[in-house]
């Protein structure tokens, strides 16, 4: 399926409709600039007049463009933007999504533990993550890497993340790597536009609309946790996860950064992240670090745990453990 067909214009009979040129935020912005230079009336012909299907759409896009940074919005404004994004998804792509801006839960700090002796390398987590988070099928984007490692190897950097054979292989173990949701996150510090930050529940998120795509955060991240969209993400409509969160699995655009958010759309609703739920071996433990009775606290207390590259001072909320 060609995503752009959907993204740009639904109605093929519209003459103006530019089939090939995606109209992301950046193009809109360029169009808007031109239009402004020519006077307000020329607005409609900005970024491909055709893609601005209706007055309603134009108005929605206009408001979207000039919205604030997520962290500065009131709850009301957050509601406003998610409703607009729902309408735009309907108008532009004909998809009915339900977007939320659910706030962090008081008294919750999310933590994650990965049992390297349990994981068998089946990669169910990766598949579930791709599906849940609407990851780009065209570039095969994946947030999680599973490294196949020989006994004795200690860092995934020497492991093999490209295996495709029957698993598990004798004398090997498997180590999942994804965003560590550092408490002292280098990516957050690297971001020149503050488009990425840590939420009070510990999840490092991105306001996609604020990201300028400079990719400093990728360079800063020691855990290969961040992903860049070189193209507009392609997700067949029938496979799209419609329950979305503004800071999570809503559709991103070309030139924007994205990353694992512990499935913020699920975890803030009390549910387990998709990778945890999908794991057939129970290698993934997720929960509230501030709850002394949680499973994650049990693991931290009773198991031999370690954090990857702890010496960097990134203070990850992602632990590895062995039985």
């Amino acid at each position: 399926m060609d995503p752009r067909k959907n993204k740009i214009c639904k109605k093929p009979e519209e003459k103006d409709c530019r089939q090939t040129k995606p109209c992301g935020r950046r193009e809109f912005l360029k169009g808007a600039a031109k239009a402004a230079a020519l006077g307000g009336a020329a607005m409609l012909t900005g970024c491909g007049g055709g893609m601005l299907g209706s007055k309603e759409e134009l108005s929605l896009r206009w408001k979207e463009y000039f919205k604030k940074h997520y962290r500065l919005m009131t709850q009301e404004e957050k509601e406003g933007t998610v409703r607009r994004l729902e309408s735009l998804a309907k108008i532009q792509n004909g998809v009915n999504i339900q977007m939320s801006s659910t706030a962090p839960i008081d008294g919750v700090l999310f933590g994650y533990a990965f049992n390297v002796t349990r994981c068998e390398g089946y990669m169910e987590c990766v598949a579930a993550c791709v599906k849940e988070n609407n990851l780009d099928r065209k570039s095969n984007m994946q947030y999680i890497r599973i490294f196949e490692m020989e006994h004795g190897q200690l860092t995934p950097e020497v492991g093999n993340a490209k295996f495709y054979h029957q698993v598990p292989v004798e004398d090997h173990f498997y180590m999942g790597v994804q965003c560590n949701q550092c408490q002292n996150a280098p990516c957050v510090k690297a971001c020149p536009t503050k488009a990425t930050w840590q939420e009070p529940d510990g999840i490092v998120v991105v306001d996609y609309d604020w990201c300028i795509g400079c990719r400093y955060c990728i360079a800063a991240c020691p855990y290969y946790g961040r992903r860049f969209n070189w193209n507009d993400p392609v997700v067949p409509e029938e496979e799209m996860t419609k329950k979305q969160h503004y800071l999570g699995n809503r559709m991103r655009g070309r030139g924007q950064m994205e990353k694992c958010t512990f499935c913020v759309q699920r975890s803030r609703a009390g549910r387990l992240p998709a990778c945890v739920e999908a794991c057939p071996t129970g290698a993934r433990v997720f929960g509230n670090l501030l709850d002394p009775d949680s499973e994650i606290r049990f693991v931290l207390k009773n198991k031999k745990v370690f954090r990857w590259k702890e010496d960097l001072g990134t203070d990850p909320k992602f632990w590895y453990f062995v039985d």
Binding site: T102, I105, D106, G107, V108, L109, G111, Q183, N184, A185, V188, K189, K194, W197, Q198, P200, G202, A269, G270, R271, N288, L289, L290, D291, P292, D293, S294, R297, L300, D315, P316, K317
Partner: peptide, 28 residues
Amino acid sequence: DEAYTAEGGVVDTYKNATAPFDENTVDA
């Protein structure tokens, strides 16, 4: 932004958290 300068680190943070979590705070 001041949120990302964690003092003491997350290990201290969770070790100091001893009150059980009230599940009723989860809306869902």
